[in-house]
């Protein structure tokens, strides 16, 4: 049933010759983005591809880079996003209504990839609908560095992991506060790029005062993997981002706050998010 034990790839220090495939490409680019001097933790804003439309979502991604983002998590809108709260869900619905397609979002990926590493976030059915191998090949061709599939737990991941490895993409798994230690260890051992650590038991969305919970989950995640640990879900303010870094997170993912800003400033979404990203980046200065 379970996948063969993953090769352990020490983060940022690939011993040459251990990689038969070109996976080093995506993994190395991600590793470099996590290891920047002057940064307490890498900043990874979430971008809903195609929201409010494809052109403007590309502009928002550029603004993330201008504001000081280290990587971008690029979401593919989906009809039934089971891991997402109301803000991202509504943005996805809007993106689909305004005609966003997978290929359109891959176009956004291609436009952003020269500026910063892109990690695509997409629900499993979209991957399977294209065909796992065709999907990862298209993703590689669009310049992406990694892939996050929030409804593809360890048990279902082997096929996609193999295709990602073959395409030079890092398949980034998730762990949650509900994951027992033993399970976290099995997930952490197969992680590529970084370990997406969900800060709360819940869906994406802004939350007040959850900083107390950061320490225990980050400590547990770091004890169970060799790759950087990025904390996400519910982080919205520079204070929360800093608290995540204080808790030991190697990276911070900010989603709903930025998607909400883009929704509230339809006239100039790029301008609105640039300021927020800059504020978050300042909060993460060493």
């Amino acid at each position: 049933m379970s996948a063969p034990e993953a090769r352990r790839v020490p983060f940022g220090t690939h011993p040459s010759g251990t990689h038969q495939h070109s996976a080093a490409g995506g993994e190395q680019r991600i590793a470099a983005a996590f290891g920047k001097p002057g940064r307490r933790a890498a900043l990874m804003p979430y971008l809903m591809g195609g929201f409010p439309d494809l052109d403007r979502s590309r502009g928002i991604g550029e603004a993330y880079a201008d504001g000081g983002a280290d990587l971008v998590e690029l979401g593919v809108p989906y009809s039934d996003p089971l891991a997402d709260g109301p803000v991202i869900q509504a943005a996805g619905t809007r993106a689909l209504r305004s005609g966003a397609t997978l290929d359109g979002v891959l176009g956004v990926c291609e436009a952003l990839a020269p500026r910063l590493p892109v990690v695509l976030m997409v629900y499993a059915n979209v991957v399977y609908a294209r065909g796992v191998q065709a999907f990862t090949a298209a993703l590689r061709d669009a310049g992406a560095s990694g892939l996050i599939v929030p409804d593809l737990p360890l048990e279902e991941a082997p096929l996609v992991l193999e295709a990602c490895d073959a395409s030079g993409l890092a398949l980034v798994p998730l762990v949650a506060p509900t994951s027992p230690d033993e399970r976290m260890g099995r997930i952490g051992a197969r992680a590529r790029g970084f370990l997406y650590t969900v800060s709360v038991t819940g869906t994406t969305g802004e939350r007040v005062a959850l900083e107390d919970a950061f320490g225990p989950i980050v400590t547990r995640a770091k004890a169970h993997t060799h790759v950087p640990v990025a904390l996400g879900f519910g982080i919205a303010t520079p204070e929360q981002a800093r608290a995540a870094a204080d808790a030991g997170a190697d990276g911070v993912i900010v989603g709903s706050r930025l998607v909400r800003a883009a929704a509230e400033h339809a006239d100039d979404p790029a301008g609105a998010v640039r300021d927020i990203v800059a504020g978050l980046a300042a909060g993460l200065h060493a």
């Binding site: 929030p150 998730l174 994951s179 038991t201």
Partner: peptide, 10 residues
Amino acid sequence: GQYVPETLMP
């Protein structure tokens, strides 16, 4: 199969 977020797996 079990195509759900990790939070639910336990």
